[in-house]
């Protein structure tokens, strides 16, 4: 276990954290306005596909990232309309959308590209890799931050901005008031339904960016169902971070670390076993930190769950 090995684990930790963090922030803004959104997986997966598809035909990074964010937001809009406006059952909408996008992307992959399984092509361009000038030459840190994309850095800035917006501005307080007491907020003239719908669409956009990093970051490809439960891991991360943007950074880093360690152990232990690590870690983390979560608010939600 030398320092270069540790540095490479930390490097893959940071890379694995980004999609989870972005989706977890999406989950957090939904819970903050009292919407239980479990279609995160769908919002991510559609973006992974849309960004790679646009990437394939245009070769433009800007257009592919926009396509990812927009497609995620679009799925968010469907969730918003069905769940917030028409008060459809959250579990049914979320599960249906997750499966619909899983089938839909596979369908489109075959229809557009004639492919099954995955799309890899050397025409695809990846997100720009950044190697910071001075830091690059520092032995340990340089390796840890090696070849990160701009979105990897951006995700932390987004978390910080969300924190400032929600907790330090008037409009942020208005948004939080909807989650605390919808009726009271409405009586003060806050358009609660509109805010809730807006937040769900925002969560779609955030997940969309997360899904884009997944398919255009460290690997440049689309694979059927490539999110493989990350949306749910993100839900766990948001829940451990108590839907607070800055705390969510920490919990997301934890899950990123589990994936990083899992990847590193693949040389020693059979990959099928190391792949279970992030999922087991999610359950263990939820159990360990369960006592710190507000029991009353949690129980209400989990009376169902």
């Amino acid at each position: 276990m030398n320092s270069a090995y540790i540095a490479s684990i930390l490097n893959s930790t940071l890379r694995s954290t980004t999609p989870i963090l972005l989706a977890a922030l999406g989950s957090a803004v939904c819970s903050r306005v009292g919407v239980f959104n479990i279609a995160l997986e769908a919002q991510m997966l559609i973006a992974s596909f849309a960004s790679i598809a646009v990437n394939y035909f245009t070769g433009s990074i800007l257009l592919s990232v926009s396509a990812g964010i927009l497609s995620g937001a679009l799925v968010g809009l469907i969730v918003a309309v069905l769940q917030v406006k028409y008060k459809a059952a959250d579990m049914v909408v979320g599960t249906s959308l997750n499966l619909l996008i899983q089938g839909g992307t596979t369908f489109l992959l075959y229809l557009i590209f004639g492919l099954r399984g995955s799309l890899v092509d050397n025409r695809l361009v990846s997100l720009a890799k950044i190697n910071l000038p001075v830091i690059r030459d520092i032995p340990f840190l340089g390796r840890v931050l090696e070849n990160l994309t701009i979105v990897d850095y951006l995700s932390y800035i987004i978390a910080l901005l969300l924190f400032i917006w929600l907790f330090k501005t008037v409009s942020g307080f208005r948004i939080l008031s909807v989650g605390i007491n919808k009726a009271a907020a409405e009586s003060l003239g806050t358009k609660a339904v509109r805010i809730q719908m807006g937040m769900v669409v925002l969560s779609g956009a955030l997940c969309g960016l997360g899904g884009t990093v997944l398919s255009m970051g460290q690997v440049i490809m689309f694979t059927e169902n490539m999110t493989s439960g990350r949306g749910f891991i993100a839900m766990a991360a948001a829940s451990l971070g108590m839907s607070h943007p800055l705390m969510t950074i920490l919990s997301s880093l934890f899950f990123g670390l589990c994936q990083g360690i899992g990847l590193a152990l693949q040389n020693i232990i059979k990959s099928q076993l190391t792949m279970t690590l992030p999922y087991i870690a999610t359950i263990v983390a939820l159990v360990l930190f369960s006592r710190q979560l507000k029991p009353s608010a949690k129980l209400k939600k989990q009376g169902k769950a």
Binding site: I38, G229, Y279, L286, S290
Partner: peptide
Amino acid sequence: FQVSMVITTLMLNYVANNIASY
């Protein structure tokens, strides 16, 4: 522990599938 059953049951799917595959 009042852990969300939605998350745990889904996570356990991946665990079972991978271990069975092993």
